[in-house]
Amino acid sequence: MPRFRSDLDAIKPYSAGRATAEVATRLARLASNEWPEEPFPEVVAAIEAAGRTVNRYPDNSVRELTNAMATYLDVPEDHLMFGGGSNSLLLFTAMATGGPGTSAVYADPSFKLYYISTVSVGARPIEVPLDDDHRHDLDAMAAAIDDDTTIVYVCNPNNPTSTHVSGTDLRRFVDAVPRSVLIAIDEAYVEFATAADFESGLSLALERDNVVVYRTFSKFFGLAGLRLGCAIGRPETLGYIRRVALPFGASSVAQSAAVAALGASDRMAERVHQNEAQRKAVLDELAALGIATADSQANFIWMQADAGTLGALEAAGVLTRDYGSGWLRVSIGNDTDNRQFLDALAGYVGR
């Protein structure tokens, strides 16, 4: 047996949401926060065309996509970096900032990769509980920053609780964090946030060299199977992250699909309204059933559940994500998925 790092024994590998189950009914896949519909025809066409060139390495400079994304976000091109999903970019950031003798601060519960990235580079995790409303406790997170802290993660909206912090609170937090600490703002679900006080951290990333924002094409853009993410920050900051990034991280197929998806941004905007309407309908029915939920600003909801809920839903063909805390994360699907989930839950509650 080869000799591995002994500290890796403490890391529990990331567990993805279930995609299959042995049930004699239609599956409603509500465990992974995916967009429930297939890509637009022009995106599929771009994928097919790019497939004919996969004998060649992708463009490592990501020129065409960089131009399209810069236009979409209205940011300078040299403020963008791409990789194989935002999670790979977050890992590269942990590698560039952390190591033995350093620490990282993040909320709990939040995206599991923050813990995995922290421990994998030999840094010390500092987990700060969410507040009573399942939101980041930014004051407590600022107070938790230690002399050896090099990075703080803020997931906004938060995964798995679907909640957000306001733009005012986020900016106040950034002001309170030492400039020597990098603030990684994970905005995987930013497009779904509709609260009046929500603000992206994009302007902060353009202003400050210790703020980087992370976006993904997996959720809103519906390209989860292609693994593509983007980091937005000051060129000098991204330059250090690039030093540890693997080459050719964004595949040619993913790049072509993303350019096509960005070209359909007018129709993409309809997804915001579609998700908001479906989310409200689901939350309203859960409230009618007497089930507690968090205030969702994402394409999923966070709901209280007893020990039998998960099994009852799975028996009805509904796959959700259990966090072992008395709460379930449930993705917002299409009409059929949501109806299957709500009917199964109503049947269990009224048993």
Rank of each mutant, 00 (worst) to 15 (best):
A49S: 07
S6W: 00
V181R: 07
T149L: 12
V213M: 10
A257T: 03
S15T: 02
S61A: 14
E187Y: 07
Q278E: 15
I241G: 03
S15Y: 00
A143K: 11
R351H: 06
T71H: 10
M303Y: 09
T168M: 04
T102L: 10
A143T: 13
A188L: 13
T216Q: 00
F4V: 14
V282L: 14
P39H: 10
A287D: 09
L90Q: 11
V62L: 02
S218V: 13
Q297R: 12
V212C: 00
G167T: 05
P76A: 15
D9M: 15
V330S: 04
Y72S: 07
R215V: 15
I185V: 13
G99V: 11
H134V: 07
L345T: 02
V318G: 04
N87Y: 00
A107E: 09
V119E: 06
A142K: 07
L319M: 08
Y106Q: 02
V128S: 08
R227D: 15
L65S: 07
G308N: 14
A277I: 08
I232V: 15
Y240T: 13
D306K: 06
L246Y: 03
A45S: 03
T102G: 01
G263L: 14
D78R: 12
D147E: 15
G83F: 03
D306E: 05
D148K: 05
T66W: 03
P13Q: 08
R124M: 14
V165H: 03
E48M: 13
N158T: 10
L204R: 05
R124N: 13
D132Q: 11
L204N: 02
G333M: 09
R52G: 09
N158A: 12
I291Y: 00
V282A: 07
F40S: 03
L170F: 06
A288F: 01
A19V: 14
L89N: 05
R351N: 08
L182I: 13
V253Q: 06
G350D: 10
A315D: 11
V174R: 04
A224P: 00
N158V: 10
I183H: 05
D169K: 09
